[in-house]
Design a protein around this nucleic acid. Structure first.
Lengths: 110, 110
DNA sequence: AGCATCTACTACGTAACGTCGTAGACGGCT
DNA sequence: AGCCGTCTACGACGTTACGTAGTAGATGCT
């Protein structure tokens, strides 16, 4: 149900429901409940728009992924070991991306 | 229930149960069920030892963490962006560890 | 044969999640 | 004013995962 991230800005329940109508046949209230629960979990923010709520992702998909990676790392015990294993699993391309990201970080922080 | 990783090698249900007896007051069968379920999920391997099973972690805690990090990354959409955000969240020390791990990888793979 | 040990199977409560329905509030149109 | 459509709030149900545990039955030692 997180294809809401695929959509762009802040959407109302109706809009999300309409966008989903093509691929999935969901009740309007289903979409509502999900959006509401996401909001409760702070994964989504909402603001009033007339009588309706307008939802938008609290953080982009990529931020969520990064958060999950952090969580995983935090449960590792030996961080060094976990990181070593992680980069060992990663594709060459991803390793390059990582190096790049680290380089940028260094540049930004000195 | 994953303090089984804290223990070292392959343990039988009874042994795990005994080790846990100090901190948690669990029924023998509880330990058994958990170990069995972990085995079903391939998180643990078991081999016969007389009539008993002897369980050992299929992968160390750190490997599991690395796997989770991979999973998270795979759900990211834009990997580059996710990695950038991830290194942005990471502590200086962890960034250093990461750099180190990448350097080793490079050395090993050419 | 009897007893201890161990496994397999089942069960129960709780929690999260996807799915949905009903009830009620609010605003526009006639 | 009264009806109708739109939207929300809240509750509900099935499924799955998980922690906990009991019972039944196999197996092996004495």
């Amino acid at each position: 149900m997180e294809q809401l991230w695929a959509a762009d800005g802040a959407l109302t329940v109706r809009e999300v429901h309409e966008r989903l109508a093509g691929t999935r046949d969901l009740a309007y209230t289903t979409v509502m409940t999900v959006l509401d629960r996401l909001a409760k979990k702070k994964l989504t923010e909402r603001e009033r728009d007339g009588k309706a709520w307008r939802y938008k992702a609290a953080a982009p998909r990529e931020e969520m992924a990064a958060d999950l990676m952090r969580d995983a790392l935090d449960r590792a015990g030996d961080r060094r070991e976990a990181l070593v294993r992680f980069v060992g699993q990663v594709s060459d391309e991803e390793a390059a991306l990582l190096r790049d990201a680290l380089a940028r970080l260094e540049a930004r922080e000195g």
